[in-house]
Simulated scan of single mutants.
Amino acid sequence: MKFKSDISGKEFLQDEKVSAASLRKPLLEMIKAENSDFDESCSLALSELNIYREKYISDFLSKELGELDEMEKKVVQSLKDNSLVADNPDDEDNTLTVGQRVADKVASFGGSWTFILSFLCFLLGWIGINVFLLMNKGFDPYPFILLNLILSCVAALQAPVIMMSQNRQGEKDREKAQNDYMVNLKSELEIRMLHEKIDHIILHQEQALLEIQRVQIDMMNDILAKMKKK
Rank of each mutant, 00 (worst) to 15 (best):
K197Y: 10
F3V: 05
Q14F: 03
W113I: 11
L123C: 06
S47F: 05
Q158T: 05
W126V: 02
M71V: 12
Q207M: 12
D37H: 15
E188I: 07
L133Y: 09
D90C: 06
G110N: 01
F115E: 06
K10L: 11
T95D: 12
F115W: 10
K25R: 10
M182G: 11
A86I: 07
D15G: 04
V85I: 15
G66P: 03
Q14G: 07
F60R: 07
N221V: 01
E72A: 15
P141G: 04
K230H: 08
A177M: 09
D180C: 00
E16W: 08
L120F: 12
D222S: 12
L44I: 06
A225N: 13
F139Q: 07
W126T: 02
K63V: 08
I127G: 02
K105S: 14
N167M: 11
L133K: 06
C153Y: 03
N35P: 04
S58H: 04
D180S: 09
L117W: 04
E34C: 06
I116R: 06
M135I: 09
K4E: 13
S36H: 07
L157G: 15
V154L: 15
D104L: 12
K73V: 06
D93F: 00
D218V: 02
R101F: 02
H200S: 12
S118Y: 05
D222L: 07
E190C: 03
M219W: 08
S62Y: 07
L23K: 03
D180L: 07
Q166D: 08
D37K: 12
K32R: 14
F109G: 00
I116H: 05
H195S: 10
I127W: 01
S165N: 11
Q169G: 04
C42S: 14
Y181W: 05
L84D: 15
N130V: 00
G9N: 01
S58K: 10
L210T: 07
E48C: 05
S47R: 10
Q100P: 00
E188C: 05
G170V: 04
S112Q: 03
N184T: 13
D81N: 14
W113A: 13
A177K: 05
D180P: 02
M1V: 11
L124A: 14
I116Q: 09
L44A: 06
V183N: 08
L149R: 11
D37G: 14
K74R: 09
K32Y: 00
G110P: 02
D104R: 13
D15E: 13
D81V: 04
G9A: 02
K172Q: 10
F60K: 12
K228W: 03
T114H: 11
S152W: 00
